[in-house]
Design a protein around this nucleic acid. Structure first.
Lengths: 177, 177
DNA sequence: CGATATATGTCAATAAGGCTGACATATTTT
DNA sequence: AAAATATGTCAGCCTTATTGACATATATCG
């Protein structure tokens, strides 16, 4: 059969495994760990009719109060149209307020309100507890190892973004890598 | 003002920080690490017009060849309607084949084809490389710590699912926790 | 001052990926 | 024969993201 893109449709019955030279264990652990890690706040958010997008916006506005819309887009790596609806909802519900930038009045500085701060804390608390429980398993002295590993998983060019978050003067492996 | 749900709209100017008793560092590291971890396969998938949903299906069919539709739904925790479109595309493109269950012919056992296995490997490779690079940062002898931490992040009732994957007889902390 | 650039907001259309509910079909179990 | 089960499918809805186009306010350049 010429011109036919024939590919063998025969079923492969052997499982993909470590012998294939792939770190399947950690790949899968990351998948399951992250899924459960995000499931805690998901439930709280659902009560307000919010989703994960609201969570991310709320988190970074709380972490970097006064950041501008453009800065927030940069951190989240989404478009302003995607941000618009989510941000509007958070403003309408009194979780976030906008103030004109003091130097450049075109800018809108974003700040959490008391309510916004409270929600951000409520969302972070179960995640923090889960992390603490996991650290207890490894032994808390292994905290540095975990941080170093996770940081090394981030694209090098984005690690600066992390270091610029407040309260991270020179955490783990910040001076070299 | 009676009956008014007044909430103080005053902007909070202080950043949420570690002093609030929350492990913000690891929360944020997990966010950034997972985002970049998934960005590698995302690019490969886009070339075939696939998304993350295809990736997950393809991965577990490769890891557990012969699993049924119901088993796959259980692992992924999605509905059959969600799976339908994605699975159909993977079958139509020759990445996955279905065989009637030998005992119960209502069931459809799912197997990867050569092409499906190749794509699964291509997707896993950059992730595995990223993990290996991160482990090199911590020192490879810390691998156990990482595995133990990630596993402890998973909901206890779901850890069994992980242990039942092939090639994981008794990995880290499987006998007690 | 006028032109241009920038920061933000908004409208419209599109797509992926998830959901629920309802119903069809084949097969197995009772 | 009837009921339960495994799967497939249709229809509609939601959230989150995308691109493109355009409006407005403000800043900056010449």
């Amino acid at each position: 059969m010429p011109g036919k893109e024939e590919h063998d449709p025969a079923p492969i019955r052997t499982a993909l495994s470590r012998e294939d030279g792939i770190d399947l264990d950690i790949i899968e652990l990351l998948f399951f760990a992250y899924r459960d890690f995000t499931s805690d706040p998901d439930q709280i958010l659902a009560a307000d009719g919010f989703g994960r997008a609201h969570h991310r916006v709320l988190h970074f506005v709380n972490r970097m109060p006064g950041l501008t819309v453009a800065e927030l887009l940069e951190v989240l790596k989404i478009t302003k149209q995607s941000l618009a609806r989510v941000l509007k909802q958070l403003i309408d519900t009194g979780h976030i307020v906008q103030l004109p930038g003091p130097k450049d009045r075109r800018q809108r500085e974003l700040y959490p309100t008391g309510r916004g701060r409270a929600l951000a804390l409520a969302l972070a608390r179960p995640q923090s507890r889960r992390i603490d429980a996991a650290l207890k398993e490894t032994g808390r002295e292994k905290r540095d190892v975990i941080e170093r590993f996770l940081k090394a998983m981030v694209n090098p060019d984005l690690r600066a973004q992390i270091d610029n978050l407040p309260g991270r003067p020179g955490t783990v492996g910040s001076d070299d890598g």
